[in-house]
């Protein structure tokens, strides 16, 4: 009987390895297919700077943009922050911040100190939108096209290389799609108007 107890460590470790095996094929830098090319999940969350103003998924439409998940407790966010500033300032990239499971005062202080690259920042204190998006950890950056459709998810720090090789081409794509989409939208809206008038 006592001998059987000695097998416990082996079983625990083997269970852990089984988990690793499952995880290893799953590259966290790639988004799960389920969420790709789907609209940003519906949400209504206060802004970081002005708690009275509530943002929704509608605010993520109109232009292709990067939604950047960040928090003051995340060291890598600090690493990528200067580059985000550069993207916003020099390349004119539309950046939206998703402040994830953070403290409002600390987050505001962070932006005051390090600079604010974001058009606006949504304050997701409980991580609800993060959960719906499937945030793996901070930092993460989503490419959202003009229609509010998630095109890509990047896990980890955004730097020159990631931008040039991955994000920039996707942003351009989203830009071209935007015009196509706009056309269909016009048709749809005219269609519905016709329907209403008839």
């Amino acid at each position: 009987m006592r001998r059987l107890i000695l097998f416990v460590p082996l079983l625990v470790i083997m269970a852990m390895f089984f988990l690793f095996q499952q995880m290893i094929d799953h590259d966290p830098t790639e988004m799960e297919l389920a969420r790709k090319d789907k609209p940003v999940p519906a949400f209504a969350l206060p802004g970081l700077r002005n708690p009275e103003r509530f943002f929704t998924q509608e605010d993520l439409k109109g232009k292709p943009m990067l939604v950047n998940v960040w928090a003051t407790w995340c060291p890598s966010c600090r690493v990528e922050h200067p580059y985000l500033l550069k993207l916003a300032k020099e390349k004119g990239v539309q950046l939206v911040g998703l402040n994830y499971k953070d403290d409002r005062t600390a987050a505001l202080e962070w932006l005051d100190k390090l600079g604010d690259p974001y058009v606006f920042t949504v304050f997701d204190e409980e991580g609800r939108l993060g959960l719906d998006l499937g945030v793996y950890g901070a930092p993460e950056t989503y490419v959202v096209d003009a229609e509010g459709i998630i095109r890509y998810r990047h896990v980890g720090v955004v730097n020159e290389k990631v931008w040039n090789e991955v994000l920039a081409p996707l942003m351009e794509d989203s830009g071209t799609r935007e015009s196509e989409v706009k056309d269909t939208r016009v048709n749809e809206s005219t269609g519905s108007e016709q329907g209403a008038s008839s």
């Binding site: 690793f20 290893i24 799953h26 590259d27 830098t29 060291p75 890598s76 793996y136 980890g156 720090v157």
Partner: peptide, 20 residues
């Protein structure tokens, strides 16, 4: 590479299976 971190400069998911 199953964990992303500041030290990410040394990670590569393809080698993970072998180490495992």
């Amino acid at each position: 590479g199953i964990l992303t971190s500041v030290h990410a400069f040394a990670s590569d998911p393809e080698r993970g299976s072998f180490v495992l």
